[in-house]
Design a protein around this nucleic acid. Structure first.
Length: 498
RNA sequence: GACCCGCUAGCUCAGCAGGUAGAGCAUUUGACUUUUAAUCAAAGGGUCGGGCGUUCGAAUCGCCCGCGGGUCACCA
């Protein structure tokens, strides 16, 4: 802690001490409000200035909030207080509240939290305000707020001290309120369809469910290592074996990868499974879910993101990966079965072929990621993923080189990943063995063998569709924020030097 | 991890052919009973991100370090 106080901090500490001497707790207690700034405006904005002035029995309302601006003009003054919903102007007159309370008003500071009683009024400039009859101090702010006009601009400070960002930038507050509502609507929608929300372990003894580098930790009593989960998939599927019909989990995943405007080491997804469904079922559910959440939260299914108008209304494009690659490069991978031929195409397109890429499917995936993803602006389900990169997905019935998997792309970014779930334990075991081979060849993101999961499948998992949707990215899209850090309340930051 | 940019008062920013550090808001004091980026008058407030170097002299030039942002790479 910095123990050198600025002049302003000293003054505020002295003011706190002075309050205490008067018998007022500088960090006060409960105050029962009748209104917040929003309900106050809803209740009184229908009246004219004259009507409010002439009300025979004006309602005494009780409101609390943080002082954001002050204009003291001798024996009367104004200030705006703010709560989560907005601001409200207070009009305080010495001849109404009395000398003691007027002194509380004039000696208060921007940033303090106050509580008032009063009646609605409209000022000469037409602003619905509160004429204060009782002015109470609630909480002293020992530090000054950022400047009122520009607010808090410094990006680092906005992330490290998000509370100041929320106080000063109403756009930031709006983003996080919307984030909560988006998640709430996801829940509402699924709950209404009969899905059950479940919680599965965050500490995983075995790496699986996705391809990613993990965080590792250690449990002292068990004296064993754990991974922070990179995906909840294998646990949720065990629940399908157990008889759950449709489940979902909203929660944090952890991946020890790079950070940028689209990636944070911890991020939030919703993952859900529906027994007796398949990939088609997941496509229908996905577009229904996102279109309806958009409509319910931002009131439209058309959004502008990074200069592109994106239409989320249902009826999204569905495309086979091989067709997209052929469109962009002219190469028809349906006809290529020889790895060396595929590799030669990759090299002539300057694609980096890594050691663990040992079959055509790896090259197909490489082509798709490098030439197709960025072009998919309108919502597009891309299906036909190679089996090599889809170790948990059921094969295409007609062509075992590919799987019943899709990813959803919007604005050139992945938003969701879905499968017809692999429920054949013998096939699953083989896939795990292939993953182990890749791991041996240097693919750090390969799955580990999860024998316990295979055993669960041996008891029989119903045919099922499953999907995971990146919630942070969905929030970015619906709130128009191009950086993931602007939709995370407390984005991961390096510890600041003392 | 690489490259580019930034870091000056509580906040927002000037100052950078090197010559004792500035403004606005905020703070303090005074005036003001419908103001709203209130106004008017006066005052206080800084190890210029940290360190080393060049120099008679560094916020300014050089090197190293820290933190952040952007782009790229890996990934969702």
């Amino acid at each position: 802690m910095d123990d050198r106080l600025t002049e302003q901090e000293l003054v505020r500490r002295e003011k706190a001490a002075a309050l205490k001497e008067k018998g007022i707790d500088p960090f006060g207690d409960r105050f029962d409000r009748t209104h917040n700034t929003e309900t106050f405006k809803a209740a009184f904005s229908r009246f004219s200035k004259e009507e409010l002035h002439d009300l025979p029995n004006p309602e005494i309302v009780r409101i609390a909030g943080r002082i954001m601006t002050r204009r003291i003009k001798g024996k009367a003054g104004f200030e705006h207080i703010q709560d989560q919903y907005g601001q409200l102007q207070l009009y305080i007159r010495q001849d109404v509240v009395g000398d003691e309370q007027y002194e509380l008003f004039t000696s208060g500071d921007i940033g303090d939290i106050v509580a008032v009683h009063g009646t609605a009024m409209i000022t000469n400039t037409g602003e619905l305000s509160l004429k204060v009859t009782n002015y109470l101090h609630l909480v002293k702010a020992l530090r000054p707020l950022p400047e009122k006009f520009h607010g808090l601009v410094d990006v680092e400070e906005r992330y490290r001290r998000r509370y100041l960002d929320l106080i000063m930038n109403d756009k930031s507050m709006a983003t996080f309120v919307l984030r909560s509502k988006i998640i709430q609507k996801l829940r509402d929608h699924l709950n209404a369809k009969g899905y059950l929300e479940v919680e599965t372990p965050v500490l995983h003894p075995i790496l699986g469910g996705a391809n990613a580098r993990p965080f590792t930790t250690h449990h002292n009593t068990l004296d064993m290592p754990f991974y922070l989960r990179i995906a909840p998939e294998l646990y949720l599927k065990r629940l399908l074996v157990g008889g759950f019909d449709c489940v979902y989990e909203i929660g944090r995943l952890f991946r020890n990868e790079g950070m940028d405007t689209k990636h944070n080491p911890e991020f939030t997804t919703i993952e859900l499974y529906l027994a007796y469904s398949d990939l088609e079922g997941m496509m229908d559910l996905c577009e229904e879910l996102i279109a309806e959440v958009a409509q319910a939260t931002i009131g439209t299914t058309t959004v502008t993101f990074e200069g592109e108008e994106i239409r989320l209304a249902r009826g999204w494009k569905r495309a086979h990966m091989l067709d997209l690659i052929q469109e962009k490069t002219g190469i028809d991978f349906r006809k290529i079965t020889d790895f060396e031929e595929a590799k030669a195409h990759a090299l002539s397109h300057k694609l980096p072929v890594e050691k663990h890429m040992t079959s055509v499917g790896h090259i197909v995936n490489l082509f798709f990621e490098n030439f197709c993803e960025k072009e998919l602006i309108q919502p597009t389900f891309v299906h036909g993923y190679p089996i090599e990169v889809s170790p948990l997905t059921k094969k295409e019935p007609g062509d075992p080189r590919f799987t019943q998997r899709f990813e959803l792309f919007i604005g050139g970014r992945e938003y969701a990943n879905a499968y017809t779930e692999l429920n054949d334990p013998l096939d699953q075991k083989e896939r795990f063995l292939n993953q182990l081979k890749e791991k041996a060849l240097g693919n750090e993101e390969a799955n580990e063998m999860d024998a316990d999961f295979v055993e669960a499948l041996e008891y029989g998992m119903p045919p099922a569709g499953g999907i995971g949707i990146g919630i942070d990215r969905l929030v970015m899209l619906l709130t128009g924020n191009p950086s993931i850090r602007d939709v995370l309340l407390f984005p991961t930051m390096r510890q600041r030097a003392k």
